[in-house]
């Protein structure tokens, strides 16, 4: 694998345009995803993880607006793709697994057609037999009998639907699969099952993954590197292992404390005191300062910048680290 990153995100800024305000859901974040790597995005609900994911895939929905920054895919500027280039980018280079497979499949179209559609959109010359064979192959890959290809989404269980979505994401062997809470809607056993399956497929096909989940344990297990977001900003990027063992940023520490360790005796979970700031009333200086137990005077005045942290080989944005 070459060292050039697959995706470079630079100063990505996303706003939601309201009736008479704009709220900056993502405030200038930078990170890379390398080829074959699983990159995780962690953070409390509403910190902007999905917004980043959608912007990466150029799927920002109204009233969202990517108002600045750049997303580069293998060096190309994704945000200024032409219509035709964009169509090629979608699915054959970057595919997506949504949080809720319940809503991600069109209820009135057979799943076979929904899979074949994805193939046909990029290989218009493929015959019906070819697309059908590919759909059957994909079904087998995720452990569903191809006999069920002609069923409608509501005839499958939640877990099966999520598998179908994953199968669909693999259809064109993309270089990056974005998974936004792919297992949240499922029960724990099914969740494990599916994650194992994704790991296996990833090992086999070598795609990169942008992985979002609220289950920090799962994320550490699955990902190579993790970015921690707080109120629309990236506060730390570190190798997955370091998130629990050597967290650099106070927020990462707090996040780690609020999750049970992977092994060993269960300890009492500590939540993070206070709640994340609303985007319309952000504090001066470091956004975490009102909740930070280690804040120093400069924190209230100046926003810290992301800097390399030699201890983990990652980066973090905190005045304590400079």
């Amino acid at each position: 694998m070459s060292d050039a990153p697959l995706v470079e995100v630079r100063n990505l800024t996303v706003d939601y345009v309201g009736a008479n305000t704009v709220s900056r859901a993502v405030n200038g974040i930078d990170f890379d995803i390398r080829p074959g790597e699983a990159f995780g995005l962690a953070g409390e609900s509403g910190c902007g993880k999905s917004t980043v994911a959608f912007a990466l895939a150029r799927l920002t929905r109204l009233p969202g607006l990517v108002s600045g920054g750049a997303v580069r895919f293998m060096g190309e500027d994704v945000l200024s793709f032409s219509a035709e280039r964009l169509r090629r980018y979608r699915w054959s280079e970057v595919s997506f697994v949504f949080q809720s497979a319940m809503n991600a499949l069109n209820p009135v179209i057979k799943v076979s057609e929904q899979i074949e559609d994805a193939i046909l959109a990029h290989r218009p010359k493929a015959s019906r037999a070819e697309t059908l064979a590919r759909a059957a192959e994909l079904f087998e890959l995720v452990g569903i009998s191809p006999r069920r290809l002609d069923d409608y989404p509501h005839q499958f269980s939640g877990g099966m639907r999520q598998r179908i979505c994953i199968a669909m994401a693999l259809a064109l062997e993309p270089k990056l699969i974005i998974m936004d809470e792919p297992t949240t809607a499922l029960d724990v056993v099914v969740q494990r099952d599916i994650i194992e399956q994704i790991c296996e497929l990833k090992a086999r096909f070598g795609f990169s993954v942008l992985f979002i989940t609220h289950d920090l344990g799962l994320m550490i297990e699955f990902c190579d590197r993790i970015g921690v977001m707080y109120a629309g900003e990236l506060v730390e990027v570190a190798p997955a292992g370091a998130i629990l063992t050597a967290p650099q940023h106070p927020y990462t520490r707090a996040l780690g404390r609020s999750f049970p360790p992977l092994s060993g005796p269960r300890v009492r979970l500590e939540g993070i005191a206070g709640s994340p700031p609303s985007l319309s009333a952000l504090p001066e200086g470091c956004r975490f300062s009102p909740r930070c137990g280690e804040a120093i005077p400069v924190c209230m005045r100046l926003a810290p910048e992301l800097r390399p942290t030699p201890a983990t080989g990652g980066e973090a944005a905190c005045h304590l680290l400079s």
């Binding site: 060292d3 050039a4 990153p5 470079e8 630079r10 100063n11 800024t13 706003d15 704009v22 900056r24 200038g28 930078d30 890379d32 108002s67 600045g68 920054g69 750049a70 580069r72 060096g75 990027v237 190798p239 390399p308 983990t312 080989g313 990652g314 980066e315």
Partner: peptide, 23 residues
């Protein structure tokens, strides 16, 4: 774990990427 930092050479000056302020 060495080059976590973005490869500076491929990145245009940041100013070009700046977003307008909210106002």
């Amino acid at each position: 774990m060495t080059d976590i930092l973005p490869a500076i050479t491929t990145t245009p000056p940041r100013a070009e990427l700046t977003a307008p302020t909210q106002r």
